[in-house]
């Protein structure tokens, strides 16, 4: 089974669908997709590491909190991330994350969009079932 993401484009905004064998993989793909919207995540060196744990009432909220946490580092510390080691618990209500990146540099990383927030629209988290991939979708306010 493969992992990946694809963009959803909308009149004023942009979102993504991400998938992988486990929720952990799908969450990591969603994060990668988000930083590809902001910049080009493949050009980000793993110079700085951030670690955090989160707990939420349900998997959807966990996904929103997770991506918002990364946006917070982006806004407060100008960090962009390109490597994600995410461990989502089986019930999809808590996670431990280690993420690697560096300070954003326009000339090296390229220019994308400024994401204001993660919204609750089109928000969906499907756990892997009967051999099918885990899949998440989310829309950003840009």
């Amino acid at each position: 089974m493969s992992s990946g993401y694809s963009l959803i484009t909308h009149t004023a905004d942009v979102g993504l669908e991400a998938w992988g064998p486990s929720l952990s993989d799908a969450f990591a793909q969603a994060a990668r997709g988000m930083f590809d919207i902001i910049t080009d995540s493949s050009k980000i060196a793993p110079a700085v590491k951030r670690e955090f744990s989160l707990a939420a009432e349900n998997p959807e909220e966990l996904l929103v909190d997770f991506l918002n946490r990364l946006l917070f580092y982006n806004g407060a510390e100008f960090l962009v991330f390109g490597r994600f080691d995410i461990d989502v618990d089986a019930d999809g209500r808590s996670l431990q994350a280690s993420v690697w990146g560096e300070e954003y540099d326009r000339s090296r990383h390229g220019y994308g969009a400024e994401i204001k927030a993660v919204t609750y629209h089109l928000l969906n988290v499907c756990k892997p079932l009967n051999g099918k991939n885990a899949k998440v979708s989310v829309l950003f306010d840009v």
Binding site: L7, T9, H10, T11, A12, D13, V14, A113, V142
Partner: peptide, 8 residues
């Protein structure tokens, strides 16, 4: 107000 996505 936009009528078209940024991507488009």
């Amino acid at each position: 107000g936009r009528t078209m996505s940024r991507h488009e």
